Computed example of a mutant assay.
Amino acid sequence: MLFIIGMDKQHEHLMPLLETHCHRCGEVTQWHLWKEIEKASLFFIPVWRFAPDYLLVCEQCHDPVKLPREFGKALLEVGNHNDANQAELEALIDKEQHRSRIRP
């Protein structure tokens, strides 16, 4: 018996989120919030949708930074864009980009 199964990722642009420095391209640029959805299919029919991941993506070089799922959901709520969130996002970007430089 033959089964044709596959995985597919879809990306959805949600909103521009903040403007800060990107260590990869060296520019102060806009960062956008994206949602990444992974789906499993059987005979080309989607049968399972996994929980979405949220990414911050640099507008210039398109470097992605994965956000914790709950934090990504919280950013979508109206009026949840405050200075504390912006400071946390900048810290996540710095941490992730510096960690990716150290990897061999």
Rank of each mutant, 00 (worst) to 15 (best):
K35M: 14
E36V: 04
I37H: 04
I37A: 10
I37F: 06
I37P: 00
E38M: 00
E38I: 01
K39Q: 14
A40Q: 06
A40L: 05
S41M: 07
S41K: 13
L42A: 06
L42K: 04
L42D: 03
L42N: 07
F43E: 07
F43G: 13
F43S: 07
F44L: 15
F44R: 09
F44C: 00
I45H: 07
I45C: 02
I45P: 02
P46M: 11
P46Y: 05
V47Y: 06
V47H: 05
W48D: 00
R49A: 13
R49Q: 12
F50S: 01
P52L: 10
D53Y: 13
Y54L: 09
Y54F: 15
Y54V: 02
L55F: 03
L55N: 02
L55V: 10
L56F: 10
L56N: 03
V57I: 15
C58W: 06
C58T: 09
E59N: 05
Q60M: 03
Q60P: 01
C61L: 04
C61N: 14
H62K: 12
H62S: 12
D63T: 13
D63L: 03
P64M: 14
V65S: 09
K66V: 02
K66R: 14
K66H: 09
L67P: 08
P68Q: 10
R69S: 15
R69Q: 15
R69P: 03
E70Y: 06
E70Q: 12
G72E: 07
G72Q: 11
G72D: 03
G72K: 06
G72R: 10
G72A: 01
G72N: 08
K73S: 04
K73W: 01
A74I: 00
A74L: 11
A74S: 15
L75R: 11
L75V: 10
L76S: 02
E77Y: 05
E77I: 05
V78H: 05
G79L: 13
G79Q: 11
G79Y: 15
N80Q: 15
N80P: 01
N80S: 10
H81G: 00
H81E: 09
H81A: 11
N82A: 11
D83T: 14
D83H: 08
D83L: 11
N85F: 01
N85K: 05
A87V: 03
E88Q: 13
E88R: 11
E90F: 03
E90I: 15
A91D: 04
L92I: 13
L92R: 08
I93A: 06
I93K: 07
I93G: 07
I93R: 07
D94M: 11
D94Y: 03
